[in-house]
Measured scan of single mutants.
Amino acid sequence: DNLVIALHSYEPSHDGDLGFEKGEQLRILEQSGEWWKAQSLTTGQEGFIPFNFVAKA
């Protein structure tokens, strides 16, 4: 599955970004460039995340 774990917390800075906490698990929905579309397994919310803040779970 496309699961990743957050290496750092991220505060959203643009509409459509997904904020998350360090250690949170996310499911990657789309990989494109440096911003990936993801869904939080904690909150169920979707949005874009910086790819370098996460690692394969």
Rank of each mutant, 00 (worst) to 15 (best):
E30I: 09
I49D: 03
G23F: 06
A38T: 01
P50W: 09
W35E: 04
I5S: 04
F20A: 01
V4P: 00
F53D: 02
P50M: 05
I5Y: 11
S40H: 08
I5H: 05
F48L: 11
L26W: 02
P12R: 07
A6D: 00
E24A: 06
N52C: 15
N52K: 08
Y10P: 02
E30G: 08
W35Y: 10
E21V: 14
I28H: 00
F48C: 14
A6N: 01
L29G: 01
G44I: 02
L7P: 04
K56N: 10
Q45V: 08
L29Q: 03
H8E: 11
G47D: 00
G16M: 08
G19Q: 08
S9K: 12
G47A: 02
F51I: 09
G19F: 07
F53C: 13
W35C: 12
Q45E: 12
E30M: 08
E11V: 14
A6T: 07
I28K: 00
D1K: 08
L41N: 03
E21F: 12
E34I: 14
G19I: 04
N2S: 10
K56V: 13
A55D: 07
G47P: 00
L3W: 09
Q39N: 02
H8K: 14
A6L: 04
D15W: 12
E46R: 09
I49H: 01
Q45R: 14
D1E: 12
V54F: 08
P12Q: 06
L7C: 12
L26Q: 01
G19S: 08
E46N: 07
I28C: 04
K22E: 09
Q25Y: 15
L18T: 01
A38Q: 00
E30C: 14
N2A: 08
A57K: 10
A55F: 10
L29C: 06
H14Y: 09
F48N: 08
L7W: 06
D17H: 15
K37A: 04
L7K: 06
N52S: 12
V4I: 05
S32D: 12
L18G: 01
V4L: 06
Y10N: 02
L41I: 11
A57Q: 11
F20L: 04
W35K: 12
G33V: 03
N2V: 12
S9A: 11
I28P: 00
P50Y: 10
L26F: 08
I49Y: 03
S32I: 13
A57T: 12
E24N: 03
